[in-house]
């Protein structure tokens, strides 16, 4: 924390105009183009402005964290990145083989749905949003492949068990209904479903928020290993700064539907620039 790094800081403090950090340059060393580029997203619900001029740029293999309190717009933004919901205005490009370079927000429903199924995976905080509770776990995972036209039972079965194994789900229970599973196992089924088609982009909405601490740590380790092995790009929404510190490379701070600050994870947590980020970080022990 900045204050403690300068122990006699209070005494030396001067009432001067805030001295903001040096403006950053465009990337020069990064050899890849962004995999995801979202610009100018606006969304209002009646008179409530949920998202205002939001830009997001993510490079291949990165984990971007999005933090902010309830109502900051972070989950709304994630639903738009998942093409579940459309903004009033905005541009969304995914730089992925097989995806046309159009604005995804302007595609018709069917091609949009196709991109969502093949290239984007999502894990929700609440498993019932992502899973059919009355179908088997393996069936839930296989559903993604069925949607792309796969009908061969042996191949569906193999793909489902492969994805469940990659999510470190105990295969002996792959035919159990999700309602019979613990919270941590339900999240692993959601994760298996999300990665079954090897998406370029994995969206995580408070993926470990409902779990107790040791299960949370185990799921976070699975995510970390998965990212390392598959290089899948992740966007992680969480209000838990510990989860963000463990996983994210960069962090975007949101408030009232706007991006307040963006930076390397340790910089956001240790030298937050914006007044709101300082409050948010210091509110945490």
């Amino acid at each position: 924390m900045p204050v403690s790094s300068s122990p006699n800081g209070a005494a030396r403090a001067q009432a001067v105009q805030p001295d903001m950090g040096i403006a950053l340059q465009a990337p020069r060393l990064m050899p890849h183009a962004p995999i995801l580029q979202v610009t100018g997203v606006e969304k209002s619900y009646g008179r409530i402005r949920a998202l205002n001029a939001v830009d997001v740029i993510v490079y291949p293999g990165e984990i971007l964290g999005i933090v902010g309190e309830s109502g900051s717009g972070k989950s709304t933004l994630l639903r738009m990145l998942n093409l579940e919901e459309l903004p009033d205005r905005g541009d969304y490009r995914l730089n992925v083989p097989g995806v046309r370079s159009d604005n995804l927000f302007e595609l018709d429903r069917l091609p949009r749905r196709d991109i969502q199924i093949r290239h984007i995976g999502i894990v929700y905080q609440h498993p019932h949003l992502g899973l059919r509770m009355r179908n088997t776990s393996s069936g839930n995972v296989a559903e993604r492949l069925i949607m792309t036209g796969e009908r061969n039972f042996a191949r569906l079965r193999a793909a489902a068990s492969g994805a469940l194994a990659a999510s470190e789900f105990p295969l002996a229970r792959m035919d159990d209904l999700p309602v019979r599973l613990s919270g941590g196992m339900q999240q692993r089924v959601q994760l298996a479903k999300a990665i079954a088609l090897r998406p370029a982009l994995l969206l995580l909405d408070e993926p470990t928020s409902g779990l107790d601490v040791s299960v949370q740590a185990a799921v976070l380790d699975t995510l970390k290993r998965l990212q390392r092995e598959t290089r899948v790009t992740m966007i992680l929404v969480s209000h838990d700064l510990g989860v963000i510190r463990t996983l994210a490379d960069r962090v975007m701070v949101m408030r009232h539907g706007e991006v307040v600050e963006m930076g390397l994870t340790d910089q956001i947590l240790e030298d937050p620039q914006a007044a709101y980020t300082q409050q948010l970080v210091h509110a945490k022990l």
């Binding site: 900045p2 204050v3 790094s5 300068s6 800081g9 209070a10 030396r12 403090a13 001067q14 009432a15 001067v16 105009q17 805030p18 001295d19 903001m20 030298d271 620039q273 914006a274 007044a275 300082q278 409050q279």
Partner: peptide
């Protein structure tokens, strides 16, 4: 380097 502490409206030089 100086730290801007918003709630104190202070800049603390390092």
């Amino acid at each position: 380097k100086s730290f801007t502490i918003h709630h104190l409206q202070r800049a603390v030089p390092a």
